[in-house]
Design a protein around this nucleic acid. Structure first.
Length: 483
RNA sequence: GGUCCCAUCGACUAGGGGUUAGGUCGUCACUCUUUCACAGUGAAAACACGGGUUCGAAUCCCGUUGGGACCGCCA
């Protein structure tokens, strides 16, 4: 064991449900940033104690995406570590051991109700308008009764014996002091009848055994903290620092959900949001460096330098796709072009562009990147570069093409291109400038007909770039049609 | 319904006893431009309400209202 005394150790503990929720991503990010900021360790632990919800390949998918986004772990299923195993399903003996200890100490007890009985109990409570919670009916069973039932082999669970008439208090690093009456805390099931622990038991045991110093997780957990504190106390363990991160919300301020848009990180990656933009955006959802800082763009390194828990917001944050789009566009515009080409290839494959010609892809991307909020918009911007026949966007454009002055322009440009060996953006500009001088036609009357003749549309990327990409042959073909 | 959490422009937020309440997205206008976009300049836009405390409250306290989360042999 090589843990140094006050080393910060945090964990991200997802259940393998098959995809990473945007909210989980932020929790993972905050944990990672906090660990890096404090020179501590970031640990990945898989909470797979629900046998009914196993998803094949979920862990691989999760690890892959987190890694892709730059969130790294120092310990975990793949990287190993001194406190494994890092799958809860492989730690069952541990949970059993501490569960027995709790029973021994009188801090937990056996209960024998069936799920149906519990449903019925809750139904009645609801009918009476009471809070639904276990009525503690098995709490005071005599030793003999318990022995007898255990022997009979009927299904049993272990429940937490919540001490009565006490005020449970703790200090949350984000929310401040929180107090709850113990009488309102449920005698939570700790060990299910299948022998697996529930979240509450497994979490406390693992966080302790793995020497977790700070628990950074979603706000939805805040109401179960008292249960955890009771377990820590019963086992004589120190309670880690709690930090409950506020929720990410839908537009209507409810918890971010599938129904109202994409929630899986993969969805965003697949749409062509750059990982840097996604991380930057997510980090700013519920956190900011404060103190008059007006910077909006942060690299992962900068985030790690600046991240502290006291700057995490205490209220929820609406996920605003407009701002993500703006930010992603900003990243796309400033990204290293060769790297961007690499990332963009899969999206170009959905267009007419021949992706084997990387130079060509590069040119097109350079011309259209300014328009892209996300990479999956590439196909809708590439048609100007791939058309072999020009289709007019609107019949009324013919009028412009057929005007006297337009004809003159086409004629002149055609001749110049004919004499040119290769059309580049530069040579195109020169030619058009010459035409302006020679014919006296300028402004709209000059460029508009050309644009329409070459693209079929009144607007689009810069003409010189388009001309270069189209190339001499197509340029002549398109002009010839109207001259 | 019970418990807990939360409350600054439409959204993300800065500020945290004395500020013209600042920035970013979005919106609108103008400028630039051989189109659209980009870029630039500017505008509209907020301290939920009511009581305290104080010379002074967006800021501290209490309440109200509003929103949210949780109340499972899920995590």
């Amino acid at each position: 064991m090589n843990k140094t005394e006050d080393e910060v150790r945090v964990r991200f503990a997802p259940s393998p449900t098959g995809y990473i929720h945007i909210g989980s991503l932020r929790t993972a990010l905050f944990n990672f940033l906090f660990a890096r900021h404090s020179n501590g360790k970031n640990i990945l632990r898989i909470e797979d104690t629900d046998q009914t919800r196993k998803v094949e390949g979920a862990v691989e998918n999760l690890t892959k995406n987190l890694e892709l986004l730059g969130i790294k772990f120092d310990e975990g299923p793949h990287q190993g570590g001194n406190y494994g195993p890092y799958f809860q399903s492989e730690r069952l003996v541990l949970y059993k051991k501490y569960c027995d200890e709790l029973i021994e100490k009188g801090a937990a007890y056996y209960a024998f109700e069936t799920p149906e009985e519990l449903d019925e109990m809750r139904r009645m409570q609801q009918l009476e308008g009471k809070q639904t919670m276990y009525d503690r009916r098995a709490r005071d069973l005599s030793n003999e009764e318990v022995e007898e039932k255990l022997k009979s082999g009927i299904p049993r669970v272990v429940r937490l014996k919540v001490p009565l008439n006490e005020e449970i208090k703790f200090d949350d690093a984000i929310k401040g002091t929180i107090k709850i009456e113990s009488n309102l805390v449920d005698d939570q099931i700790l060990l299910k009848s299948d022998g697996f622990p529930t979240y509450h038991l497994a979490n406390v045991v693992d966080d302790h055994l793995m020497h977790i110093t700070h628990i950074i997780r979603g706000e939805e957990w805040i109401t179960s903290v008292p249960k955890h504190i009771i377990i820590y106390r019963a086992l004589g363990w120190e309670v880690p620092v709690m930090a409950h991160v506020p929720l990410i919300l839908n537009k209507d301020k409810s918890k971010l959900s599938k129904r109202q848009g994409d929630v899986a990180v993969e969805d965003y990656l697949n749409k062509g949001y750059l990982k840097e933009a996604l991380i930057n955006f997510i980090a700013l959802l519920g956190w900011n460096p404060g103190e008059g800082e007006e910077q909006e763009f942060f690299s992962m390194k900068e985030l790690a330098e600046k991240f502290t828990l006291d700057k995490v917001q205490s209220s929820g944050a609406v996920f605003n796709i407009d701002k993500l789009n703006w930010m992603n566009n900003a990243y796309i515009k400033n990204y290293d072009i060769d790297k961007l080409v690499e990332i963009s290839i899969p999206f170009f494959e959905k267009s007419e562009i021949d992706t084997s010609n990387v130079q060509f892809v590069r040119k097109v991307l350079l011309a259209i990147r300014v328009y892209l909020n996300k990479l999956d918009e590439i196909p809708q911007h590439t048609k100007f570069f791939t058309q072999n026949e020009i289709e007019l966007e609107d019949e009324s454009l013919k009028e412009i093409l057929n005007s006297e002055s337009s004809k003159k322009v086409f004629e002149a440009l055609y001749e110049k291109i004919d004499k040119t060996i290769e059309v580049t953006a530069e040579s195109y500009k020169l030619m058009v400038a010459e035409i302006q001088k020679e014919t006296g036609i300028k402004g709209k009357n000059l460029f508009k007909p050309i644009r329409i003749a070459l693209t079929g549309s009144e607007n689009g990327p810069e003409l010189p770039a388009i001309a270069e990409i189209l190339g001499k042959d197509r340029l002549m073909k398109f002009l010839n049609k109207w001259k």
